[in-house]
């Protein structure tokens, strides 16, 4: 099953803990904030993605079997 990560970039404060836990998945921008809003995971990346999400002090990262978003249409 395909998994997606969704990052609420309005909540991200640049802790960088996600990238420290899973640098191949959570790429940071030049300011040190999470540079991705949503990403479809490759097979085998799930555990690393979860570790990154669990490390976020702001709880900005969600993982689901579909792309999540504030707009319900985008989540389908």
């Amino acid at each position: 099953m395909t998994m997606w990560i969704t990052v609420d970039t309005s909540v991200c404060c640049g802790h960088g803990r996600c990238a420290a836990a899973a640098p191949d998945i959570y790429r940071l921008d030049d300011n040190g904030y999470c540079g991705i809003e949503s990403l479809e995971l490759l097979s085998g990346q799930e555990d690393a993605a979860r570790a990154g999400a669990a490390s976020c002090p702001e709880r900005a990262i969600r993982i689901a079997d579909r792309r999540l978003g504030p707009d319900p249409a985008a989540a389908s």
């Binding site: 640049g14 940071l28 040190g32």
Partner: peptide, 8 residues
């Protein structure tokens, strides 16, 4: 100041 202090 952020770019000066980023992880990179």
């Amino acid at each position: 100041l952020l770019p000066l202090f980023s992880p990179n």
